[in-house]
Design a protein around this nucleic acid. Sequence first.
DNA 1: ATAATAGTGTCTCTAAGACATTATATT
DNA 2: AATATAATGTCTTAGAGACACTATTAT
Lengths: 234, 234
Amino acid sequence: MTESDFLASYDPNAFPRPSVTVDLVLMSMTAGALRVLLTERTEQPFEGLWGLPGSFVGMKETLDAAAQRVLHEKAGLSPTFLEQLYTFGAIDRDPRMRIISVAYFALLPYSLLSAAVTDARDLGRLRFEDGGFEVLDFSDDPVPLPFDHHQIIATALERLRAKLDWSDVAFALLPEEFTLRELQHVHEVIRGKQLNKPSFRTRMLTTGRLEPTGRRESGGAFRPAELYRVKEPE
Amino acid sequence: MTESDFLASYDPNAFPRPSVTVDLVLMSMTAGALRVLLTERTEQPFEGLWGLPGSFVGMKETLDAAAQRVLHEKAGLSPTFLEQLYTFGAIDRDPRMRIISVAYFALLPYSLLSAAVTDARDLGRLRFEDGGFEVLDFSDDPVPLPFDHHQIIATALERLRAKLDWSDVAFALLPEEFTLRELQHVHEVIRGKQLNKPSFRTRMLTTGRLEPTGRRESGGAFRPAELYRVKEPE
DNA sequence: ATAATAGTGTCTCTAAGACATTATATT
DNA sequence: AATATAATGTCTTAGAGACACTATTAT
């Protein structure tokens, strides 16, 4: 049998198949806290709970495209950072049926996100405590999460911390122009500890990834700091 | 409608679904080269080519379990290292139909693998050249790979290099007891460059992950080196 | 002037690389 | 004895942290 004969006679329904979804962990930072985008579930199961946005993957749609689509539907924009996170395949993670979910991880500066997200409850605030974390709503009450969404967010946090020192994830949480103090603050929140100012400055400036804009911040009752931007790699 | 009513009436076949497979990148090291396990395809498509072992995911089987099953079927043993790598979902990656593949990455010391794998061709040798790599068979001819298997192996190589300095991946390629020279050799092959001996030794010994066995290697026409093992974390 | 933060200089400590030296096994 | 590698010591350099100091803005 030739390969084309084989393909013509192949029956894709010979074996039962699981469903495949993408779930999106979109994080941002404001008011000194990491936040994660949640949407209210309007259908069963877990109707009424707030959880990660997601969608089934179309048959003519790549995984990346499905994640982009979910992001566009929920936040109305393209991300500064989007990558595949991990695939979750526990058998009973969804009570409806076998659903394998490919989780994606996105970052956005709050300045862009706040324009697209109207409801304050959409952004759960992450509170860290003794090694773990919980998600709080706008009134600081803990939010119960559906499915394995707590585990998915935990995986995203690990990824964020692992990539902090050698990738551009921190910049993806800042506007196009930012001060070194703001950059250090992002690092400190993600690390969960304070950092040394002189060594942080030299470490950042010697990477060669930053370039000064010549402009300065304004508005504070103190000496204004120089604004930097990320240099495009050549 | 209550949640249980909803679940009882839910139709899993309402939407078309892709198939889901796992593909396994099992690497080992011998004769100064990284090797990857290949199996000969006995069915269409790409019949006769050598490619990564894989399998469809069972409906009552987690992704991890499917990867373990493939590993057990092909190599007859459990791995010293196995983790999920990345999920590949290009629309036309398989000519039969839409197949999303969750790739897994495993490492085994050659001493264990050689007992389980009989055919020398089962272990493709990775040859690095100007940034990329190719897979060679037992006679050093380049092996054409089916599907997107070249890309999957490339992703596994990136992962291996990224984890080399802060994880236990190097130990997973060595037998239970090994010398510091052997450990350094593994690092050098993966990094693709020579390393400084004194600093490598102190770096390894100060991690606290190694403990001397008190025994020494034998057989060489030179001073025998001390054998070490990995200390279990407490 | 005062307050608040920006930005820099100095010192110490740690780790790595380069190089050389001593130690110990086999032949 | 010759040889090959193990294992260690020394020197230099680079980077990070701690701490203190100077600079610059708004009020």
